[in-house]
């Protein structure tokens, strides 16, 4: 069945680094209108999975493809890179001011300039960055950097967004601001994959869960698991996705 929902699909996925088998999965669907909590212990491959879906890495086996996105013009490649926005655990900010970093991706967008300008203004307020706009981005604290990176994503309003351990650098205040932007994006239909090895303020917005454990990625609906510690989750065998 063909729908207009933007999604990234990984089939018969296997990821290895040299001889080390990281994980396998027979099918993963990351799509709009779903917020997924990616769980797993440190070093289990959560970041690698996200980078695979972002198109930065090639899987050892299997294929990853996108559906429901506009076809790129002939002079641009149709790779999956750029389809799902990936935010690093420690966001990278370009040399320059906070404003430069906020507006950096707008040159690659075809959206209406006035609309982008209006969203930028809203994002500045939501992330409480107005007093920092002309400051060098490199001088921001960890939480401010994270807020800036998420505000930048909020302006773009991506169809799919991946946040890698977003709360690792943030105090409660920053977490609240980010939660507000994430909730907005969820309401706008952005599909999100939020990695965290523990539950936090942001993972509460998740309605699905993927668990990377024992070299296997398991998917399930998080609504049935909300009160359970992620590491203790027992997943229904019928929903287990494994390509062992």
């Amino acid at each position: 069945m063909t729908t207009n929902t933007a999604k990234i699909i990984a089939k018969d996925l296997e990821m290895r680094f040299e001889d080390k088998h990281l994980f396998s999965a027979s099918k993963l669907v990351f799509e709009q209108n779903r917020v997924i909590h990616l769980q797993g212990d440190n070093g289990c491959g959560k970041t690698t999975l996200m980078k695979l879906l972002a198109g930065f890495y090639q899987p050892t086996k299997g294929k990853i493809y996108a559906e429901g996105f506009a076809i790129a013009p002939w002079w641009r490649s149709n790779s999956i890179t750029g389809k799902a926005l990936y935010l690093h655990q420690h966001p990278y900010l370009f040399e320059g001011s906070v404003l430069y970093n906020l507006t950096y991706p707008q040159r690659f967008l075809t959206a209406d300039k006035a609309q982008l300008q209006a969203r930028t203004e809203q994002a500045i307020d939501k992330a409480q960055l107005r007093h920092l706009l002309n400051q060098a981005a490199s001088s921001l604290s960890g939480g401010e950097k994270q807020r800036l990176a998420i505000a930048r994503a909020w302006i773009i309003q991506p169809k799919l967004l991946m946040l890698d351990e977003p709360t690792s650098n943030m105090d409660k205040h920053s977490q609240h601001l980010v939660l507000q932007m994430i909730t907005d994006l969820k309401q706008q239909g952005t599909g999100m994959l939020i990695s965290s090895h523990q539950t936090c303020m942001l993972t509460k917005v998740c309605d699905h869960a993927w668990l990377v454990s024992d070299k296997t990625i398991t998917t399930d609906n998080v609504s049935t698991l909300k009160d359970t510690e992620p590491t203790q989750v027992e997943l229904a065998p019928a929903l287990q996705v494994s390509a062992g």
């Binding site: 980078k51 972002a54 198109g55 930065f56 890179t81 750029g82 799902a84 926005l85 990936y86 690093h88 420690h90 966001p91 990278y92 370009f94 950096y104 991706p105 690659f108 967008l109 930048r152 773009i156």
Partner: peptide, 11 residues
């Protein structure tokens, strides 16, 4: 991350 950030932001 400079390359990855730029690419993921649509560059």
């Amino acid at each position: 991350r400079a390359w990855e950030t730029s690419r993921t932001l649509g560059a």
